[in-house]
Design a protein around this nucleic acid. Structure first.
Length: 492
RNA sequence: CGGGGCGUAGCGCAGCCCGGUAGCGCGCCACGUUCGGGACGUGGAGGUCGUAGGUUCGAAUCCUGUCGCCCCGACCA
């Protein structure tokens, strides 16, 4: 049992918060709603970044960087986008402080230093980027533009939670410009596939690919695609979005190009992003009451070696063997930690590395040295087995693969257990309250029905799955005809 | 923005109702014994009690203001 970690059953929300803090992932900062991402947490984010960045580059994208500040006049150019974010924008109005004549040693905003035009701290970068693209694009020869940026954004949320919703967060945002609608739609879908691929294969997180309903669409987008994941408490989490922007931003910023036929037209756009919220998804999808469970592909440390010793002589002997194993594993690209601290006992170390979610732990003691064995413990199932010292190195890659597969399978099984087809509003409400999870139900396609269900049950349409099969049915709320089921859930 | 809670040692908290100059657990430091699932003993260091003012001989405690954070809700690309 992790020291003082509450259980998921007792209080899921508290469990999550305490886990984030106790596993050294992040903590609250002195600024409301903002967090400090600690080195261990940041190293997981870096692994995510590396994997995603490679996938972006493999699909032809390049990184660039645009400013944090957006002049208000640019920000308001795309009306729907501006409206959608207006309520949560931080604004810079002044550019200088001065010493307070009334109060020595204190600073006040210098009223003389008021900006002529306020600057919006970006909640998203479409505005500043499309105003730039206007300068970059004249001809079809300038297209497509395939750019991504890794950045921070600020959204002044009323209520925040570590990683899941913070006032400032880290993300990547891809912004592409194309000469045809068809090409832009393909890009949108391609990036959705990249996200799904990343979630499933790196995070071991099964996701549903789908489109958002009109009510949940990104402001300024024509169509929003998303991947939706299921957490252990039966609530859904939007893990990534990819938007087909149509010509909305091109029109707002007057981005036109001449095509092969010499005709002038507006450029087609996409944008897509995932954020540090993925950290929250990773934690909530796999971890248990003993702490984090990390998929090997994103674990900062794959294998920890804990020596069990009484004397320096014993430690020296074990160290030699441990370093040998560590070196052999590192050569294969694995991150290995040899925890030779003599300030903590083995039991403490076991608990600590479990809390931090290290996938595989090796314990080597005098008995092992004598017998030529090593105890191998896997974090996901807590199973232990004894292996021969001379074959442990060759067995570990397969073990790590198995852990990756096992936690994915476990999450997938859980998701299917909490996904229910419901056929009436009564059944909908009952299942939602007793079991939670995804509810596959018929919907008449109107925003009114969606809003009414949300109002009455707090469940929203997470997405219209791309693979939803055509099936005649009746809307659970209005009884009107429907051609496919959509996924409802309570969500983060 | 509504409701609730909390600011006292690095962390978690008690003390506050009933004012008398601050305590517990963990952690930290030293030494010794321990070490195969979160060790134990002994000794030690560490706090202008969020902040400003008021009442009082005396304030962590009572009063007023103020700042901040967290949780629940509403909201949420």
């Amino acid at each position: 049992m992790a020291k003082e970690l509450p259980t998921r059953k007792e209080d899921y929300s508290l469990w999550y918060n305490e886990l984030v803090k106790k596993a050294d992932l992040a903590e609250h900062s002195d600024v409301r709603g903002c967090m400090v991402i600690k080195p261990y947490g940041y190293s997981i984010w870096e692994k995510m970044q590396q994997a995603l960045d490679k996938m972006f580059k493999d699909t032809g994208h390049s990184n660039a960087y645009f400013p944090l500040f957006v002049p208000k006049s640019l920000f308001e150019a795309e009306e729907k986008n501006a409206e959608g974010f207006a309520k949560e924008c931080a604004i810079v109005t002044h550019y200088r402080l001065k010493t307070d004549p009334q109060n020595k040693g204190k600073l006040i905003v210098d009223p003389e230093a008021k900006l002529d035009e306020e600057l919006v701290v970006r909640p998203t970068s479409e505005a500043i980027i499309w105003s730039t693209y206007k300068k970059w694009i004249q001809s079809y020869r300038d297209l497509p533009i395939l750019v991504n940026q890794w950045a921070n954004v600020v959204r002044w949320e009323m209520r925040t939670r570590l990683f899941l919703r913070t006032a400032e967060f880290l993300w990547q945002e891809g912004h592409t410009a194309h000469s045809t609608a068809d090409e832009a739609v393909k890009e949108t879908v391609q990036m959705l596939d990249v996200y799904a691929d990343f979630a499933e294969n790196f995070m071991a997180l099964p996701v549903v690919k789908g489109r958002k309903s009109e009510g949940e669409r990104f402001p300024g987008a024509v169509d929003t695609y998303c991947i939706e994941a299921m957490m252990q408490d039966g609530k859904a989490l939007q893990a990534g979005t990819s938007h087909f922007l149509g010509q909305n931003f091109a029109k707002a910023f007057d981005v036109q190009f001449t095509n092969k036929e010499g005709k002038l037209g507006y450029v087609w756009g996409t944008s897509w992003g995932v954020s540090t919220r993925l950290m929250g998804a990773l934690i909530m999808a796999h971890s248990d009451d003993d702490g984090l469970v990390l998929p090997p592909k994103l674990a900062p440390i794959h294998v920890v070696i804990v020596p069990i010793f009484r004397t320096d002589e014993e430690l020296a002997k074990i160290s030699e063997k441990a370093q040998e194993i560590a070196a052999a594993l590192r050569k294969q690209g694995f991150a290995v930690k040899f925890d030779n601290r003599d300030t903590h006992k083995p039991g403490f170390k076991f608990a600590e590395w479990e809390l931090k979610g290290v996938p595989v732990r090796l314990a080597i003691g005098p008995r092992d040295m004598e017998a030529g064995t090593v105890e191998v413990a896997r974090r996901d199932t807590k199973e232990k087995q004894v292996m021969r010292l001379d074959e442990v190195v060759e067995k570990i890659p397969a073990l790590l693969d198995d852990i990756q597969t096992t936690i994915y399978a476990r999450a997938r099984t859980f998701r299917s257990e909490v996904t229910t087809e419901v056929n009436s509003y009564e059944e909908f409400k009952q299942v939602l309250n007793e079991k939670g999870g995804f509810l596959a139900a018929h919907w008449d396609g109107t925003p009114e029905t969606e809003a009414a269900i949300k109002e009455e049950t707090k469940a929203t349409i997470r997405c219209i799955p791309l693979d939803a099969k055509e099936e005649a049915g009746a809307c659970i709320y209005s009884g009107k005809p429907s051609t496919r089921r959509v996924l409802f859930a309570r969500a983060y």
